[in-house]
């Protein structure tokens, strides 16, 4: 979606405040938010792209007016409500009013080390599929403008670059955002001259490398 999350190259956000040795949390609730969102992910009821879409699919005023972990909590509340796990009424009252659907089990403490250490690999067996684009060949990104989830930033749509890596056959975010855990496509790293993306103020020899799936690309 052409949503508020797609900020690469946008102006007006001001300087970066490096805060080299600063804490990763500003307030105790942010710690709890991180743990809660991570544990809820362990329910297995949504994909990483569904959680991304639940965070980004909101008004720009909401997105930019919310702190980072506030967006995480809003996204979690939306997912829980959509899945019938925690209703808006329950959140309003603080009282459980409906039982959980069958087959829902929490991530238990004894499984945390194993689950975090294992992660969730996103590559899939390509079978007979072979990558269309070879290392070093030129590609042009498609001018895709879907209302749904996509992981191609707007700053690199309709631009020409070269294939700088063939990463493998990876789950496709556009379909993963609708709960599809299987559909995969070849994932490439595509490198663009920074001036082709951001004009003459970009450094002459500078480049930007972006991971893009085959359905985002055409051979040149």
């Amino acid at each position: 979606m052409n949503g508020p999350q797609d900020v690469g190259g946008r102006h007006g956000f001001g300087p970066v405040a490096p805060d080299i040795d600063g804490p990763v949390f500003h307030a105790p609730w942010e710690r709890r938010a991180l743990a809660l969102v991570t544990a809820a992910g362990g329910l297995g009821q949504w994909t990483i792209d569904e959680s991304r879409f639940a965070r980004e699919n909101r008004t720009p005023a909401d997105y930019y007016g919310s702190t980072y972990f506030e967006i995480w909590i809003k996204g979690l509340e939306r997912l829980l409500e959509e899945r019938g796990l925690v209703s808006a009424g329950e959140r309003a009252s603080g009282q459980v009013s409906a039982p959980l659907p069958a087959g829902i089990a929490p991530l238990t403490a004894d499984r945390v080390p194993e689950v975090l250490a294992k992660g969730t690999p996103y590559d899939r067996d390509p079978g007979d599929s072979r990558p269309v684009h070879a290392l070093g060949t030129m590609v042009r990104t498609r001018n895709l403008q879907p209302a749904g989830h996509i992981r191609m930033p707007s700053y690199c749509r309709g631009r020409t670059g070269w294939i700088s890596a063939v990463h493998g056959y990876h789950v496709f975010p556009d379909t993963s955002a609708t709960g599809d855990r299987d559909t995969a496509h070849w994932l490439y790293n595509v490198t663009f001259a920074a001036r082709d993306l951001f004009g003459e103020q970009a450094g002459e020899g500078d480049t930007v490398s972006v991971d893009l799936w085959e359905p985002y690309l055409d051979a040149v």
Partner: peptide
């Protein structure tokens, strides 16, 4: 939200501590 999710059996409080 944490209390509600705990009450409903959606999270194990000890798992939150283990994650952190």
């Amino acid at each position: 939200l944490e209390k509600l999710m705990t009450d409903k059996g959606l999270v194990d409080p000890a798992a939150l501590d283990a994650i952190l």
